[in-house]
Design a protein around this nucleic acid. Structure first.
Length: 305
DNA sequence: AATCCTCGCAACCGCACCTAG
DNA sequence: TCTAGGTGCGGTTGCGAGGAT
């Protein structure tokens, strides 16, 4: 029973992705849009499992991904949301459209957790850091609050409960609006809020990662891999850097503009991956976004910061 | 210069949920 | 309604880079 398989089982390759594989995947997604991951390996000839393709796209190749150091703003957001939501990285990262859940998770595990533990041990006193300590004590994996020197348990629980109630109110307010809006963070309790949202939100905003990748690759080799998807791609562009040219023509030239709102506007205007963006964002609804949306968002932000 | 150690990140794995047939 | 494919998410691992010895 069940629906028929999209492709027969085949040998899968594991380990790091090569630039050639990246290009194949990117060019395929350019043509077909993200989704139907099960069919990607068969249609592209990639010897990768569908999961691997999806992961590579969402965590690395997807345009608009911001790499490098986290800002203080982002750090605070993660700390607060982690305290509120626990280790729900997809939900947390949906508040940081330029960051992937994997990035957030890694950053938490490698930096923030350590940082917070250190501060806890040092018995920090300033208010901001105290808040961080309080919040971190909610870490699902760190339930040992034995070292906390801040306030007594009753006090911080009370404070936390107040914070959670405020957040709930803000979220309820935001989500109870009639139309969806890109400026409203998705419901963190929603089971699948992340990938489509963040992917499309920033989709047209930046192609830095892919452009750099392609530039490096095209400069290091004189021939494009001979795959059907690539040859199709090249047919629609000119010259040696066909794939890159194609990308540049598709994506926004304002790759350095960091604004999420700008990115979203660009996305709605120049929607490329129609399947993905259409299913998750109604352009009309976005254009009709009211000032209430902004009020709601600012309420959440007020609480956060 | 060689070896060891630590850290950060990309990728994999397994589970849960959703959905088409 | 049941079943199996498809997808998303969180935890974990493995590897490479850089620093320390």
């Amino acid at each position: 029973m069940g629906r028929p398989p999209c492709f027969e089982k085949m040998e899968v390759k594991k380990g790091p992705w090569t630039p050639e594989e990246d290009i194949i995947l990117v060019s395929y997604i350019q043509q077909h849009g993200p989704g139907s991951w099960r069919c990607v390996p068969r249609n592209t000839g990639l010897l990768r499992c569908s999961k691997s393709c999806r992961l590579r796209w969402t965590n690395y190749l997807r345009p608009g991904i911001k790499r490098g150091n986290f800002t203080e703003h982002e750090e605070k957001t993660i700390i607060h949301l982690q305290a509120l939501l626990g280790n729900r990285w997809a939900a947390i990262s949906s508040y940081l459209p330029q960051r992937t859940d994997n990035d957030v998770k890694n950053y938490w595990n490698t930096h923030l957790k350590k940082k917070l533990n250190l501060q806890r041990q040092n018995g920090i006193t300033n208010e901001d850091n105290t808040n961080m300590t309080e919040m971190s004590s909610c870490d699902n994996n760190n339930n040992n609050n034995n070292n906390r020197r801040i306030v007594n348990k009753g006090q911080w629980e009370k404070k936390l409960q107040t914070d959670i109630n405020m957040a709930k109110q803000a979220l309820f307010h935001a989500l109870s609006l009639d139309q969806p809006s890109s400026s409203i963070p998705p419901d963190p309790n929603s089971p699948k809020p992340h990938h489509h949202h963040s992917a499309t939100t920033s989709y047209a905003s930046s192609t830095d990662n892919i452009s750099k990748l392609l530039q490096n690759w095209t400069s290091s080799t004189s021939s494009i891999p001979n795959t059907s998807s690539l040859s199709n791609n090249r047919s629609s562009s000119t010259g040696e850097g066909g794939v890159l040219d194609h990308q540049c023509s598709l994506f926004s030239p304002n790759s350095e503009s960091g604004s999420v709102d700008e990115s979203f506007n660009m996305m709605t205007e120049t929607s490329i991956f129609k399947g993905e963006s259409k299913s998750n964002f109604d352009t009309e609804a976005t254009n009709n976004a009211t000032t209430d949306d902004h009020d709601s968002l600012s309420l959440i932000e007020q609480w956060l910061y």
